[in-house]
Structure formats: structure tokens, C-alpha cells
């Protein structure tokens, strides 16, 4: 039998080892992606359209598509998630209806994204005849994003103390006024953090988009901002391959001579963007909290 002191040392050592291993794997992955990808990055690579057969193509359109899709998906899913979270946490009584809703959200959030993609294909692309389009992709991403976002907003509301709600009500504010004028402003920093983090996940999503937003990126005319024109960047009905889908595509069927380099470069851009989201979430969340509370 070991004495408690040795036992303690062994336990702590093991835990450090495991934690270190995780960090090491993460660093190795990041390092590999960045080391092989960063040299490919240039202004040309980030802005030029892709080429199908020749070398020297860029990811400009894909990068733009990723952001446009992200914004559309967020515009659709955020209001719904906010409403759902407010209803669930501030209004709903604990009964079988809310239990059912919560279970549904749990199940939805654990659906493999490729299943969401296939559902999106059958329903939006085929049934609703939206075709392979940004809109189909945005709806699919909404399905993918909604449960996560709802849960994160609900958690944000939970962090606001009950005494704040009582304080609002005791001042003669209605329930709605208390929620919108006291609780939400107080929860903004943490809601924002949740939104940015989920944006990172949406940004890197590929499987849900392959069958909905499509795998082709028609050239865009960045001087044409009429959303009804097919080459306009704003047109939501055009097919739009995103960066994550592009990576998958190149690796499975890319025939350009510099496929490997483009794939590495795209991965680096993707990873950098997601890292940026994460740091922005931390930074903005902290700053906003400080500004709102000056604590």
C-alpha cells in the first residue's frame, strides 16, 4: 500500500501527464497546419478565384462565401435562439411541454452534421426547390446552430442572479420589461461570447453544406451588388462553396497541380479565422462586461 502522500503525487503526475498530452496534440495539429499552410498565404491567394485545372488559384470566393453564409445563418438563427432561450428560461413553467422541447434541443444538437446536410438537401434543395444555394445552406446551418445557440443563451440568462429579476419586478416593471431592460443587457457579454464561439463552429462546418450550399463557386462580380443578379456576391440563390467545403473537395477530387498547397493554405486560413473568433469572443466579452459593470 502506498502512503497517501505518494498516492497524491502519482495522481497529480498522471493528471498533469494527460493534460499535457492533450495540449501537445493540439499544438502539434495547429503547428502542422500552420507550418504547411502559412507559406502558401498571400494577398493573391486570399482574393483570387479558384482554378479548376491550372495552378495558381486562390480562395477569394470561398472565403467570401464562408462569411456571407455565416452572417445569413446567424441572422436567421440568432433571433429564433434568443426567443427560444428567453421563453424557456424566463417564462416557461417546468412541465412536460418544456421537457419535450429541451429533449428535442438535446437530440437536435447531437445530430451528426452530415444528417443535417442530407435533411437540408431533401427538404430545402429538393422539396422547397431552393436548389444548391446560399439560402439552403443557411437554413441547414440554422438547424445545426439553433440548439447550440439556444443552450448557450439559456446558460447566459442563468448566470444573471434571481435578485436582479426581483429587483426589476419590485420596481413595477413588467416581466417583459424586466427581461428586455434588465436581464438581457446584463447578459449581453456572455451572450456575445456564445454567439462568436458558435460562429466559429458554423464557419468550419463542411458536411452540412456539401449537399445544401453546393460544391461549386461560380465567379463573382464584386462590382455588382444587386442581389437579383446571378454573379452578384449578395445573391442568396447562387451555389456557394465555402472554405471548409473547398478543403474537402480538393482533397477528395482536386486535379489542379497545386492541390496540396491550396488545401494547406485553406486549412491555415480556416484555423486562423476560428482562432480569431475565439480570441475575439474572449476579448469582447471581457471588455463589454467591464464597460457595463466597470467592476
Amino acid at each position: 500500500m502506498m502512503n497517501p502522500k505518494t498516492q497524491n503525487k502519482v495522481a497529480i503526475g498522471t493528471l498533469y501527464g494527460v493534460a499535457g498530452l492533450v495540449v501537445l496534440i493540439l499544438l502539434a495539429l495547429l503547428g502542422y497546419i500552420l507550418v504547411s499552410g502559412l507559406p502558401q498565404l498571400s494577398w493573391h491567394f486570399l482574393t483570387a478565384p479558384a482554378k479548376a485545372f491550372l495552378k495558381g488559384g486562390g480562395v477569394g470566393v470561398q472565403l467570401y462565401n464562408s462569411f456571407y453564409l455565416l452572417i445569413l445563418a446567424m441572422l436567421i438563427s440568432f433571433p429564433i435562439a434568443l426567443g427560444a432561450a428567453i421563453y424557456l428560461y424566463e417564462y416557461a413553467k417546468d412541465n412536460w411541454v418544456t421537457t419535450t422541447i429541451r429533449t428535442a434541443i438535446e437530440i437536435l444538437s447531437s445530430l451528426p452534421s452530415v444528417v443535417v446536410g442530407l435533411f437540408g438537401f431533401l427538404f430545402f434543395v429538393v422539396k422547397l426547390r431552393l436548389g444548391f444555394s446560399i439560402l439552403s445552406g443557411a437554413f441547414a446551418l440554422t438547424f445545426f446552430n439553433l440548439p447550440l445557440l439556444t443552450r448557450s443563451i439559456e446558460d447566459s440568462l442563468r448566470t444573471i442572479d434571481t435578485t436582479q429579476r426581483e429587483g426589476g419586478l419590485a420596481l413595477g416593471l413588467s416581466r417583459w420589461e424586466t427581461v428586455t431592460r434588465v436581464i438581457l443587457p446584463a447578459a449581453v457579454p456572455s451572450i456575445l461570447t456564445g454567439v462568436i464561439l458558435s460562429a466559429g463552429r458554423v464557419f468550419g462546418e463542411a458536411a452540412a453544406l456539401i449537399y445544401t450550399a453546393g460544391q461549386s463557386a461560380p465567379a463573382l462580380d464584386f462590382t455588382d451588388w444587386n442581389p437579383f443578379n446571378i454573379s452578384s456576391p449578395l445573391n442568396p440563390m447562387r451555389p456557394a462553396e465555402t472554405l471548409a467545403v473547398h478543403i474537402w473537395k480538393i482533397n477528395s477530387e482536386g486535379i489542379m497541380p497545386d492541390a496540396k498547397a491550396i488545401s494547406s493554405g485553406s486549412s491555415a486560413v480556416l484555423v486562423l479565422a476560428i482562432l480569431l473568433f475565439n480570441f475575439a469572443a474572449r476579448y469582447l466579452g471581457k471588455r463589454l462586461y467591464k464597460r457595463l459593470t466597470s467592476a
Partner: peptide, 17 residues
Amino acid sequence: IRKEIGMVFQQPNPFPF
């Protein structure tokens, strides 16, 4: 009613403003 009958709580609960 709560406008005419106000309340102060055990734990000070100023809003974070």
C-alpha cells in the same frame, strides 16, 4: 401595485449599470 408598494431586498441588488 409594485410601483406604489416598492421593495428593498436582503442582498443589495443594483443593476449592473
